Simulated scan of single mutants.
Amino acid sequence: MSEITPDLVRHLGVLARIQLSDEEVGRLTGQLDAIVDNIAKVSRVATPDVPATSHPIPLQNVFRADEAPVALTVAQVLQNAPDATDDRFRVSAILGEEQ
Rank of each mutant, 00 (worst) to 15 (best):
P82Q: 04
V25K: 02
A65P: 04
R44L: 14
Q99Y: 07
L20Y: 01
T29W: 06
V50D: 03
A34I: 01
R27A: 13
K41S: 06
G96H: 05
V91A: 09
D83I: 05
E98W: 10
P58V: 13
E98N: 10
F89K: 08
N38H: 00
Q76G: 01
V9P: 00
Q19I: 12
E24S: 11
V62M: 10
E98V: 15
N80L: 12
I94K: 14
H11Y: 13
F89L: 15
E24T: 09
V77P: 00
N80H: 15
V70R: 11
V70Q: 10
P56Y: 09
A84S: 15
L20V: 05
G30R: 04
P58R: 14
M1H: 09
D49H: 14
A16L: 15
A68W: 09
I39L: 14
H55T: 11
A81P: 08
I18D: 04
I57G: 00
D87I: 02
V74M: 07
V91K: 03
V14A: 13
T73S: 15
V42L: 13
S21G: 12
L12F: 04
A52Q: 11
Q19M: 03
D86K: 11
Q31N: 07
V45S: 02
Q31E: 14
E3A: 06
E23W: 05
D66Q: 07
I35G: 00
G26V: 05
D86F: 08
H11N: 10
R88F: 06
D66A: 08
T29H: 07
Q79K: 10
V50P: 00
D83W: 04
T47N: 10
E97L: 15
A84D: 05
A81C: 11
I18H: 08
L8F: 08
